[in-house]
Every structure is written in structure tokens, then in C-alpha cells.
């Protein structure tokens, strides 16, 4: 990882934020699946699901799994929350990075 906050660091940071947002979004779909609601989400959620391309199919699979294994949605939720936390931690690592300490020795006159 780069030490400075140059373009590479900014790209890494951006990717981390995008990944974290994706994880959060996926995690938000979990209650939907857990509640056994229709596999085709209404309105804005449908548009969001479409962003993933296979988002609709994924939601359908989750709804099916939720209906067969009661704990499945909890495990998926936990999984995505874990991934989002790791992404958040990596982002914090960049945002919170401190400048390298430099020892300044007093110079004699």
C-alpha cells in the first residue's frame, strides 16, 4: 500500500468505499429475503438490484433459501456484514493514516 495520498491511494480508497457500499447494499437485501417477501422487489429497490445484473436472480435464490433454511438469511447477513466491516476497516486504514514520524535532532550553533 502506498504511504502517500497520491492517485494510487485515492483509487484504492475509492474502490474500498465502493466495495463497502456494495456490501452494505447486499446486507440490506437480506431482511427482504428473510421476510420471505416477493422475489421481485418494488420501485427503487428493483433498480438497485438491476445494477448488479444478476441481482434479481440473487434475490430470488435468497428468498428460496430463506424459505427452506430458517437460518440461511442470518448467515448471509452475517457474511456481508463481515465483508463490509473489513472494507470499512481498510478504508479507515487509508483515511486514518498518519504522516510518518520524523525525528528532528537539535543542531548545534
Amino acid at each position: 500500500m502506498p504511504d502517500d495520498k497520491g492517485p494510487v491511494a485515492k483509487i484504492f480508497c475509492l474502490l474500498t468505499v465502493v466495495f463497502a457500499a456494495g456490501c452494505l447494499l447486499m446486507a440490506l437485501f437480506m431482511p427482504w429475503a428473510e421476510l420471505g417477501l416477493p422475489a421481485t422487489p418494488p420501485g427503487p429497490l428493483q433498480a438497485l438490484a438491476g445494477l448488479y445484473g444478476g441481482g434479481q436472480g440473487l434475490i430470488q435464490a435468497m428468498v428460496r433459501a430463506a424459505q427452506t433454511d430458517k437460518n440461511f438469511p442470518f448467515y448471509v447477513y452475517s457474511s456481508f456484514l463481515g465483508l463490509a466491516m473489513i472494507a470499512g476497516a481498510i478504508a479507515l486504514n487509508f483515511v486514518g493514516r498518519e504522516e510518518t514520524e520524523k525525528t528532528v535532532l537539535p543542531t548545534k550553533k
Binding site: N71, Y75, S79, L81, G82, M85, I86, A89, L92
Partner: peptide
């Protein structure tokens, strides 16, 4: 630090989810 705590807990969540 919080960052390490997040990662430790996140790893725990992943293990729980992947190995019920």
C-alpha cells in the same frame, strides 16, 4: 485500535457464516 477490532469481529462473522 478500532480498525483491528473491526477486522477481528468481521473475520469472526465470516467464520460463523461460512462454518455454521
Amino acid at each position: 485500535p478500532p480498525v483491528i477490532n473491526y477486522i477481528l469481529f468481521a473475520l469472526l462473522l465470516l467464520v460463523v457464516a461460512w462454518f455454521p
